[in-house]
């Protein structure tokens, strides 16, 4: 059940000033550090990132080609990700984009894939995979070896994903039109499972300002119920010793720490592993206290980390 907090002069003032629903701002004050800085950041276009597709080119080669066209690029904490500081033409309209030399992808998504720690010849399951940004990054980290099974129930999204896989030259991936909740039908276990779960998208307000007012506490409940089912289904697919990465682009603890905490309580064989990038996850929220391992999960905040808002948990199944 989504927790609702009392309104205060601060929450109503910020909600009015930046055009948010008041219930949402009251909650942000509980779990987003520096809320006003966050809301200011949401008023500005987010930093655009591109991820070099090393199946087709190198970072050095791509930097040289785009710079010769007038692009200004900056390196980031991830070696394959570049921030676009100036783009004389649309980043999705260059020949290099058409040839699959890069993918437009937020740094947060790449950090989530990094947490998966994939290597060559592994078997990987990508649940809720479309449009394929993370899948194509997994494929390049695996150097097109092993196998990736990508689940996407929606035909239109699966079609868009198949174009992205072809453009990026990925040949180690199958797309199955299947809901992740039915993943057990695969009758397989995987070295790595990625669940970037459908969520309330609180973290992408800078890209979609309608999110300031378009969702309700009931929507958060709906997402959390689905996420609880998906993460259980995903955890069942991991080989002993394997890793499940759970991620959302929401800040809501009901969609993040509470989902992981519930999983830890239900399954006795899962540990939360520490991650390099981001702020520590919450170990308490309102009256709730979570397993101390939840501090190992990571939160990425737009105003602190210059990414879309993201939550990432790396879970080792023993």
């Amino acid at each position: 059940m989504t927790l609702i907090f009392s309104e205060s002069a601060e929450s109503t003032g910020l909600a009015a000033r930046y055009g948010y629903d008041r219930w949402l701002v009251s909650r942000f004050l509980e779990y987003v550090p520096g809320v006003q800085d966050f809301m200011e950041k949401m008023e500005r276009p987010p930093t655009q990132y591109i991820r070099v597709n090393t199946l087709k080119t190198s970072r050095k080669e791509l930097e040289a080609r785009l710079r010769s066209k007038g692009f200004e690029l900056k390196r980031t904490i991830m070696p394959e990700v570049l921030a676009v500081e100036k783009a004389p033409i649309a980043t999705g309209a260059t020949n290099e984009y058409l040839f699959g030399h890069y993918y437009m992808q937020d740094l947060s998504s790449c950090i989530a894939v990094d947490a998966l720690d994939v290597s060559k010849d592994q078997a990987v399951l990508d649940v809720a995979a479309a449009p394929g940004g993370k899948t194509t990054l997994i494929a390049q980290k695996m150097e097109n070896t092993g196998s990736i099974i990508a689940l996407e129930p929606n035909e239109k999204r699966a079609r868009a994903m198949s174009f992205n896989l072809a453009r990026c030259g990925v040949y180690n991936t199958c797309i199955l039109r299947m809901d992740g909740m039915h993943a057990e039908q695969l009758q397989m276990k995987f070295d790595r499972v990625l669940l970037d779960a459908p969520c309330s998208c609180e973290g992408v307000i800078a890209k979609d300002a309608t999110r300031k007012t378009s969702h309700t506490p009931q929507d958060v409940d709906h997402c959390a119920n689905r996420q609880n089912k998906l993460i259980e289904a995903a955890a069942m697919m991991v080989k002993p010793g394997g890793i499940l990465v759970y991620a959302t682009c929401s800040f809501a603890p009901e969609e993040n720490e509470i989902v992981v905490d519930r999983l830890l309580q239900k399954f006795g064989n899962i540990a939360v592993e520490p991650l390099k990038y981001g702020s520590s996850g919450l170990t308490r929220f309102g009256d709730l206290t979570f397993d101390s391992q939840l501090k190992n999960t990571r939160r990425l905040y737009p105003h602190i980390h210059d990414t879309t808002g993201f939550f990432i948990a790396r879970l080792r199944v023993s």
Binding site: D121, A123, N144, T145, G146, S147, I149, E152, E155, A158, M161, S162, L165, A166, G169, V170, Y171, N172, T173, C174, I175, L176, R177, L186, Q187, M188
Partner: peptide, 22 residues
């Protein structure tokens, strides 16, 4: 279609929407 050998097991059991590289 160009596919990796590890995908063949899935292909023989399931009906993929997309596989490998056409």
């Amino acid at each position: 279609v160009c596919v990796m050998p590890a995908e063949l097991e899935v292909i023989t059991r399931m009906q993929p929407y997309h596989m490998g590289l056409a």
